[in-house]
Write a protein that binds this DNA or RNA. Structure first.
Lengths: 134, 134
DNA sequence: ATGAATATATGCATTACGCATATATGTTAT
DNA sequence: ATAACATATATGCGTAATGCATATATTCAT
């Protein structure tokens, strides 16, 4: 039984149902180039509260995205404070983003299906109770 | 920086952004008691295609759910074929399901925010191009 | 007896995180 | 001058939820 194609839990071989951070960063970098610390602030504007993610994870995700050729980075010196590693999205990264957005759309439909199913059951229970005079 | 409360990626200590299988099984078991093999079929009716999940994962998830006291199981002999381990949802499982549905609702909102943001950027690009006479 | 269908389970690997911690550089207050 | 703070990046360790492959057992039809 069972071979995987475009799974709910998995796309290809990876369990990438959770790639919110990566998708969000790609989206921000599609808007404009940026470095890690600024991206953290931009995520906040974007709807993430600063308690909701880990800054270490952000940097690690950016390094991984560069390894995957979704972004490239260069060191920017000269401003105030320490050097900044500035990231730019690549064409490959833009394509990945488009695909990930499609994945989010199908994920959203699945979630809606579950929620609807739950609420239909709840309604049914209520009308059962009404039928029984509860 | 950063302390975790009700993360996008995480609820408490666990990275449970992906718990579709568990939620789906709880939902099915809230409807009626069932055993693994039947649940696999019912998931199919439910919108999962049989290629989209792993039957081993299903059984492993059910055992974990029992460990967490979300379900209880008993062996049912006497029918045709091998013995079946029949699962029933507990009150604790029903509470967990209600909470997980709430989690799905907020997750859905987050997904919508990302999709909207992506599509807004695409529209903006188009009108930029129009402004530039492209 | 052989094979198919039914039924449950486990070992190994991977991914995307969280948390804690380390390191370094400017900037400001004392 | 030094201590504290804000800025900035990175890594080690651990975990949850999954996939894939494989093992085991029972019943039924041929």
């Amino acid at each position: 039984m069972m071979k995987n194609e475009e799974s709910l839990f998995c796309k290809g071989k990876a369990p990438n149902i959770k790639r919110f951070m990566e998708i969000s960063l790609l989206l921000l970098l599609a808007q404009e180039e940026s470095h890690g610390y600024t991206l953290a602030e931009r995520l906040t504007d974007f709807g993430f509260s600063s308690e909701e993610f880990n800054i270490g994870t952000l940097y690690r995700t950016l390094r991984k995205m560069e390894k995957d050729n979704y972004v490239i980075s260069k060191w920017q010196e000269g401003g105030q404070g320490p050097k900044k590693r500035v990231y730019q999205i690549t064409e490959s990264g833009k394509n990945a983003l488009a695909q990930l957005i499609e994945m989010l759309k199908s994920r959203k439909k699945r979630i809606e299906k579950l929620i609807d199913s739950y609420e239909y059951e709840s309604l049914k229970d209520k009308s059962d109770n009404i039928m029984k005079g509860k």
